[in-house]
């Protein structure tokens, strides 16, 4: 234990000694190397050389190139945005045209439907009228025939009545005067 302490103490002394030595060394080279004025011309010379070289590399090659790249990119982006805007307008136009076409087509369809309906109505009216006419004609014909049949029937009845009256008169032994019978029957029929 004592040994270790002794050793540590020794090391510490040694370290202090070295530090002092280092300080002495540093003092020799004017403390901070930054303040060693003998090296200033060297540093300044090389600094100026370096700065001039960097300046020329940057201003002649690098900066115009990077500036160009950035300008190109900006141009490309602007163009792309303009193109996109244009395409958008075109798309809007196309949509408008499409909608217009849709509206037109719908109107056309309505028109065709109306026309077709009108045509059908016309045909229907014509057909109805024709059918009505036919029916009327047929009814008139039927009425006429009924009238004929009826007249015929009356005639027949008169005929039968006349002949029957003549027979009856004959049966009673009389001699039927044809014209008197006819007149009598006609009178009865009318009565």
């Amino acid at each position: 234990m004592a040994n270790t302490t002794h050793e540590a103490a020794e090391t510490a002394t040694e370290a202090v000694g070295h530090a002092a030595e280092a300080a002495g060394h540093a003092a020799e080279s004017a403390g901070m190397p930054q303040l060693d004025f003998a090296t200033f011309p060297n540093q300044i010379f090389w600094l100026v050389v370096a700065l001039i070289v960097i300046y020329f590399i940057l201003s002649r090659i690098a900066l115009p190139r990077i500036g160009g790249i950035l300008a190109d990119r900006q141009g490309t982006i602007t163009n792309d945005i303009a193109a996109a805007e244009e395409l958008k307008l075109k798309a809007e136009e196309a949509e408008k045209a499409y909608n217009q076409a849709l509206v037109d087509a719908r109107a056309e369809a309505n028109k065709i439907i109306a026309e077709a309906r009108a045509a059908i109505q016309e045909d229907l009216d014509a057909a109805t009228a024709k059918a009505d006419a036919e029916i009327a004609a047929k009814a008139a014909e039927s009425a006429k025939r009924i009238e004929e049949i009826r007249a015929h029937a009356v005639e027949n009845v008169a005929e039968v009545a006349k002949s029957a009256a003549a027979e009856i008169v004959a049966a009673f032994g009389g001699k039927a005067d044809a014209s008197a019978v006819t007149a009598a029957v006609d009178t009865r029929l009318k009565g």
């Binding site: 370290a15 280092a22 080279s29 190397p33 930054q34 540093q43």
Partner: peptide, 14 residues
């Protein structure tokens, strides 16, 4: 044998 070497400013020597 060298102890601790404190030369923090040596890195700046030209």
């Amino acid at each position: 044998s060298e102890g601790l070497a404190f030369h923090p400013m040596d890195q700046f020597i030209v």
